[in-house]
Every structure is written in C-alpha cells, then in structure tokens.
Design a binder for these strands. Structure first.
Length: 287
DNA sequence: GCCCAGGGAATCG
DNA sequence: CGATTCCATGGG
C-alpha cells in the first residue's frame, strides 16, 4: 500500500478493493455523513476524518502520518489483500454476484465499546434511526471535537439514566445500555481482555450483557474484534440465504450458522458483508 | 390505523 | 428445548 502526505492530507493510490460509499453504507458502522457519493465524513477513535475518493485516488484529511499509521490504516483494514479474500470465497455464483456488487467493501476495525452500544441499539430498529440515536448519545455525552462529538466512553455515560436515554430515543433498549455501562465500569465485562480470548469464549463473555444475543455478539466480534469466522445472521441474511441456497424455504438460524461455517469457514464474515449489502440494496426476499 | 425494523428477554408449553 | 409475545419509536 503506497501513500504520500501533502500537508494534513494523506493521499492513497490503490488498485485494491476500496469504495468509500460501499464500505460505509454496507451497514457495519453508523457515524458518517455523506457530502456526495464520493465524499464522506466519519467520526471514529475520537476524531473526525474526511474521505474523498476519485477512482483509485483517495484523500484522507485532516490527519497526521502518525494517526494514519496508528489509527486509520487499521480502521480501514488497509493491510489486507481483498483480492485474496475474494479468491477464497470464489466458486459460488450467488456470492460472486454479491462480491461483484460490493467489490469495494472493506471490513472496518472499529472500537469495541462504540460498536457494542451501536449494535445493542440496532435490535428491532432501522438503520437511519440507529444512526440518529448513536449521534444523539454522542452529542449528549461525548467529548466535543472539531465540528462534532466523539462517541462517549463508558465513564462519560456513567450517569446516563433511563430518562436521559429516553430523550435520546433509545427506546426499550435503555436498560440494556445501562447494564452495559455498569458491567464495563465495574469490570465484570473487560472489553480489552476479550481481544485475547478465543472466539467462543469472547462470545460467551459478550452474551452476559443484557440485550446482547447471538446476532449482536457476532456483529461486535466481526466489526470490532476482527473475528472473520463469525456470520451475523439478521433478517436480511436469513432472507438471502433462504432465497438462494435453500430454494426460498424457511431455515432455522442454527442451520444457517452451520451452513455458513461449512461453506465459508474462516472467511464467513466477509461473505456476510457482501451478502448483506447486496440483499439489502436489492431487497432480496423482502416483502 | 397498521405494519415492521440489522433481536432479545420473558414467559409460556 | 421451541414457539409466542412484547418491547419504544418513527416511517411507509
């Protein structure tokens, strides 16, 4: 990966898979705004970053070389060879179509805490509402940064009660968020220690948090802990799997997990993102 | 007004 | 175990 710094701008030239629109709008993260289809602003790791894409030329600003090396390189998964990922997943018509459709998707490496709360909010919710709610929480509790607000730390959310959360429109998920804050602050849940656990243990640990079930745990494992073998199964994934792989017949969640594990193994998480983006964009199997 | 949304908990049998 | 119901909120 070759890049050069021009003042506070990092200019990256890559022929490798990278489409900023697809990467941000494929549903893995929530804190971004689109200026137009090739220019976005994201908030992550306590910073606000603009990304502008013109074909293979991508501009990141304002940033420093240190931040680019230490934060954004990892965040945008820039060290991964996505052609190799696609090669691993080749040989299946449906997934190849989905990979072609979202060929510039990259799996972001997000912060566990923000990812956890965001996906707790995601349950029985719609993506635009999730984004608004996460933004509400940031504005109320987070640190002000240039032109926006960082997602708050657990400490900053310590005194956030049910009434406050109701104002922030978290709905019935308020008590789950309060439980997550309490568990992390008390040390019952150690989000840092989870990094070193095997995936099965890590998942069991996340499931101890109220409001975190298998799907949300898998999202956090995939999007914040880099566990690419998990296959978060939501309504869209269920639909697309049933539609293309089970003759449109109903399949139990457990059987979908087994299917994905056997078919895609250590790369199931990548397959999930390609399929989710394709299914949701094209409304595959939707009523 | 009714239905449903990147699910999960509670409560049945 | 499996199936059903409820959960806040807002957009279609």
């Amino acid at each position: 990966m070759i890049y050069e710094r021009k003042g506070t701008t990092i200019e990256l030239n890559t022929a490798d898979s990278f489409d900023i629109k697809q990467t941000l709008e494929c549903g893995q993260c929530f804190r971004f705004t689109a200026a137009d289809k090739s220019k976005y602003e994201i908030t992550a790791f306590g910073k606000k970053l603009s990304i502008e894409q013109n074909g293979e030329k991508i501009l990141f600003y304002p940033t420093t070389e240190d931040d680019f090396e230490n934060i954004w390189k990892s965040y945008f998964d820039l060290n991964r060879d996505y052609d190799a990922v696609k090669k691993q997943l080749s040989g299946d018509k449906t997934l190849e179509k989905a990979m072609d459709y979202g060929s510039g998707i990259r799996l972001l490496n997000q912060e566990p805490w923000e990812c956890l709360i965001s996906f707790i909010i995601s349950q029985n919710n719609r993506i635009p509402m999730i984004r608004r709610t996460v933004e509400n929480i940031s504005e109320r509790c987070g640190t002000k940064i240039n032109g926006g607000f960082a997602f708050p730390t657990p400490e900053q959310m310590k005194d956030t009660d049910e009434q406050t959360l109701a104002e922030l429109k978290t709905g019935f998920r308020s008590k789950y968020i309060i439980n997550a804050v309490e568990r992390v602050l008390s040390g019952k849940t150690d989000l840092n220690a989870i990094k070193n656990m095997d995936t099965k243990t890590a998942k069991e640990e996340l499931l101890k948090i109220k409001g975190v079930g298998p799907k949300i745990a898998d999202c956090v494992l995939l999007f914040a802990y880099g566990r690419h073998e998990v296959f978060p199964t939501d309504v869209w994934i269920k639909r697309v799997i049933e539609y293309y792989y089970f003759n449109k017949e109903a399949v139990k969640l457990k059987d979908i997990q087994t299917f994905a594990h056997e078919k895609w193994g250590a790369f199931a998480g990548f397959a999930q993102q390609y399929l989710f983006y394709y299914a949701r964009s094209e409304k595959i199997g939707a009523k």
